[in-house]
């Protein structure tokens, strides 16, 4: 691999222009937009920024967004782990199909997902009409928002775990069974330590998406300010109100969450790759 790289970069000008182009693109497509978000948010000064962030509706949007994430992440953590466990440790008919089905939320546009939930659980939907008889309203209130967010983010944990657990195989767990450990003990002492970092990585991704989801939430939210308006929806609403500074102030909160996510992600990746880096291979590269 290292040789192949060197061959492409033989001529310095090729290497430099490629690196230059990549840097330039990254600059215009990633760095400048992020800088602009913060610059716009602070364009009218710190006090305006603070006013916008502590606005009653913005605070509510932050609270709702964190609340939705706080419900979504544990749900998908349990679901994703159970799913990865079952498809990598057991063989049963329909296993392959199940692995394919996990990817549906990735394949389907979030807006379509939102509409599907609306058609199913809305007042005129199959289940929604029945639920309405018992005065249960799921759509256009926070349970609906949680439902679509869970749907959109459900593959992340499972997708992180499945390749790792397949690669690790089940020998260690089998040894545990032979030595007479209980199922829970095997999970806690063997499986969990093995998948720990992949699991955290999955959680970080799930959380990032749950906080930032716009399309699906927009369909089922009903846009009631101070009630069903999440932070991404709030950004759009402020922007359409001609309150550009307010919109960017809220957007900067989302960007800050995203950057925090990246830091955690980088740390987790570093932890995951440490055993490999510490081997003698390091000298080769």
């Amino acid at each position: 691999m290292a040789n192949a790289h060197r061959r492409v970069g033989d001529q310095p000008w090729v290497r430099r222009s490629l690196i230059g182009t990549a840097l330039l693109l990254a600059m215009f497509m990633l760095v400048i937009p992020v800088v602009v978000i913060f610059a716009q948010a602070l364009s009218a000064g710190w006090s305006t920024f603070a006013d916008n962030v502590t606005d009653q509706y913005t605070l509510h949007a932050i609270g709702l967004t964190l609340f939705v994430a706080a419900l979504t992440v544990p749900l998908n953590l349990v679901f994703g782990t159970a799913l990865a466990w079952s498809v990598t440790r057991f063989h049963f008919p329909g296993r392959k199909l199940l692995i394919t089905l996990i990817d549906i939320p990735f394949a389907v546009s979030p807006v379509i997902a939102g509409l599907l939930y609306l058609l199913l659980y809305g007042r005129n939907g199959w289940l929604g009409g029945w639920l309405a008889n018992y005065d249960v309203q799921l759509m256009f209130s926070w349970p609906g928002i949680v439902m679509v967010t869970v749907f959109v983010t459900c593959p992340f944990v499972a997708r992180e775990l499945i390749p790792l657990m397949q690669q690790q195989g089940s020998e260690e767990e089998e040894a545990g069974v032979v030595l007479g450990a209980s199922g829970w003990r095997i999970f806690r002492k063997i499986t969990l330590p093995n998948i720990k970092w992949a699991l955290i990585y999955g959680v970080v991704l799930t959380n990032a998406r749950a906080v930032g989801e716009f399309g699906a939430v927009s369909v089922v939210s009903g846009n009631v300010r101070g009630e069903t308006n999440t932070l991404p929806l709030h950004v759009e609403l402020l922007y359409q109100d001609y309150n550009v500074v307010g919109a960017f102030a809220s957007a900067s909160l989302l960007a800050a969450i995203a950057m925090l996510t990246l830091v955690v992600k980088a740390f987790v990746e570093w932890r995951q790759s440490r055993p490999i880096v510490s081997t003698p291979e390091k000298e080769v590269s």
């Binding site: 509510h60 932050i62 609270g63 709702l64 964190l66 609340f67 939705v68 706080a70 419900l71 544990p74």
Partner: peptide, 11 residues
């Protein structure tokens, strides 16, 4: 997390 969200919502 749940408590935090609930607290923010009801605040």
């Amino acid at each position: 997390g749940f408590a935090l969200g609930a607290a923010l919502l009801s605040a």
